[in-house]
Design a protein around this nucleic acid. Sequence first.
RNA 1: GGGCCGUUAACUCAGUCGGUAGAGUAUCUGCCUUUUAAGCAGAGAGUCGUUGGUUCGAAUCCAACACGGCCCA
Length: 504
Amino acid sequence: MPESLQACKMSISDRILSQRREKLAELRRLGVDPFANRFQPSHSIARIREQYDSLSGPELEGLQKTFQLAGRLMLLREFGKATFCHIQDGSGARIQAYAQKQVVGEEAFALFKKVDLGDIVGFEGTLFRTRTQELTLAVNKFTLLTKSLKPLPEKYHGLTDVETRYRQRYLDLMVNPQVREVFEKRSAVIRLVRQFLEGRGFLEVETPMMQPIPGGATARPFITHHQALDMTLYLRIAPELYLKRLVVGGLERVFEINRHSRNEGLSIQHNPEFTMLEFYQAYATYEDLMSFTEEIIAHVARTLLGTSKLQYQGQEIDLTPPWRRLDLRESLTAIGGIPREVVRDREALVALAREEGVTLRPGEGYGRALTKLFDLLVEGELQQPTFVLGYPLETSPLSRKSDTDPEVVDRFELFIAGREMANAFSELNDPDDQRQRFEQQLAAHQAGDEEMPHALDEDFVLALEHGMPPTAGEGIGIDRLVMLLTDSPSIRDVILFPQLRPER
RNA sequence: GGGCCGUUAACUCAGUCGGUAGAGUAUCUGCCUUUUAAGCAGAGAGUCGUUGGUUCGAAUCCAACACGGCCCA
């Protein structure tokens, strides 16, 4: 069968692949390595733009300077004896290049005619401006660096199919510049947070990702198994109990920025693994941490965006301190519309929670009803930054009891744009009280609550028995902070490889 | 787990009342030495997510399933 007829029967992707493989073979026949070993760019494209975008055509031509640039071919406009193309490099910037047969020579030009969109190429040349004043590299020498065997997504609309964007994030990054920007900002947020904490004398540490008893939060863990030790391990749901051991040991200001994993549902703001900053400061209280939180978040926003007033999903959010402080029970009345007498009446509130569809597990009562009703009625309304105070003891097993109200703990949660962004408290450092609260959690686990730890962390209690100074600690959700600062509606927009079901 | 929406060429999307599949980009061929989503002429390219069902006939109607999105739990 003639080759052309065979081609007719091929699907489009097969045909493009086979055409490109043919070119690959032909290049090899011509003695050209389609996966060249080494090319040293003299400049990134972003740097070229930074340095030379302001120069006029005559000024550029007066430079007498040769540049080596490398990048992926994103656009080709071919004429008979000349070609314009755009290349994009790791700096995210693009530049136009112009190759003329007359300049590069017949052989090199013939070779250049074989390149495809998506190939990675190296150019050597000088800078000039075209008639329309576009900064352009006049190519003297051309090197094919990497042959691409697959077509690029559409040049104008880019790639919009979210499933493909997540599954093949590299394509998303190639063609959607705003995606690269989000992840550059994510990196900057983490860098700024780290610098801020180091500036305040905090020590960065790493604690176990695999824990024999998953503690520090209420969540169902992922379970794994260590063969040599023949033991069950749990991917951590929080690093809290380890960081506090370090405070006992005298590391009085510690922080960790790392992944937590929780074996729960996925949503627009939940991924099974996500990134948190947790930090602990001895001789501080949760009140100190409120102003600390205002400072660090406002600092990151101002440095990153140049302002503390930002737009999130069409709404202005003002991060200028000080932020609103709101009592949990008060909020249920003021925002949730529940009469004060009902909020204060334990039985009436539990009954109301049930009416609202809240399921209370064994051992859960008034405290849980309060926080669940808050989640339902108040959380989404807290658009401007708000510290919520007065959390019930029942739902705060690691927090210090209030000195003035035994039913609540010294704790706050921070809400911005209707989402929990941070959770902080003065730490419980009474080992006997901690043991009792662990025992209650254990009882809840034994009653079937899989979000409670399966064993009592004796080792942590032992650490507390050695004495932990008065300490306050906090967790800040990095993904959610990045969502806020990049105006991203979904957590999947700020995680490079969000969890998806395998493709079939 | 439940509800709603989506899935058509490599990509971005049309596809009317059920009548046998369309455009742009990309690809291939030809022309073209300053283009700007370059242009002109031509060509090829489809398991309409999958599996069933209804029908003379299904991308289109129905059901189940898969994957994705949003909302709820």
